[in-house]
């Protein structure tokens, strides 16, 4: 088994545990925190190697999404958002491709392409994730203002944690 697969499996487990055991438990009372969710596990989808085929990407996203759903008791909501960004990932990567191109044996990390590139890459997909997630959670666009507010606030907090995560673990592959 090549090292990137092993790394991905470890990251898979670590991110699920972090999401369920740590970030799901952060639930401070107060009206402000009604709008904030800390979502970091999509990092697993973001950090899969370039050569992962689009279909495998979506299948893996579905699997991790369903596992998160089971712990959140929201069957299908996280999974659909995860599949959505897995579907978007190849397009986003193509748009953000640097002049020198990608090394397809690597993964899209900050080590290889810089912190600015990584933030813009993860910001696009995380925003897409959260917007989709809160839309499906509400299941109606009647309260679109609320959906947008939740998306923006959760986006800011989640991105903060994702960047901290990238600096702490600094994944190479």
């Amino acid at each position: 088994m090549s090292s990137d697969i092993v790394r991905s499996i470890i990251r898979f487990v670590v991110l699920i545990l972090l999401q369920i055991l740590v970030f799901r438990q952060i639930n401070p009372s107060g009206s402000f925190f009604f709008y904030v969710s800390f979502i970091i596990y999509p990092l697993f989808i973001l950090l899969l190697p370039f050569r992962t085929s689009p279909i495998l990407l979506m299948l893996l996203a579905f699997v991790i999404g369903i596992i998160i759903d089971i712990s959140y008791g929201s069957y299908g909501v996280h999974a659909s958002a995860a599949v959505f960004i897995a579907f978007l990932r190849p397009t986003v990567l193509r748009v953000l491709e640097p002049r020198s191109g990608y090394n397809i044996t690597q993964a899209p990390t900050k080590t290889h392409y810089g912190i600015t590139w990584f933030i813009s890459y993860s910001a696009v997909l995380m925003f897409a994730y959260l917007l989709w997630y809160f839309s499906v959670e509400a299941f109606t666009f009647v309260y679109f203002g609320q959906i947008l507010l939740k998306t923006i606030l959760s986006f800011l907090f989640s991105m903060l944690i994702i960047i901290v995560y990238m600096f702490i673990f600094d994944p190479k592959e």
């Binding site: 979506m58 069957y75 299908g76 659909s80 599949v83 499906v136």
Partner: peptide, 20 residues
Amino acid sequence: GFVVFLLLEAFCMFLVVRYN
């Protein structure tokens, strides 16, 4: 890829409507 995306989303929506 798009077909798989649609299938997975359809299944997700089924779960959403069925269990939430």
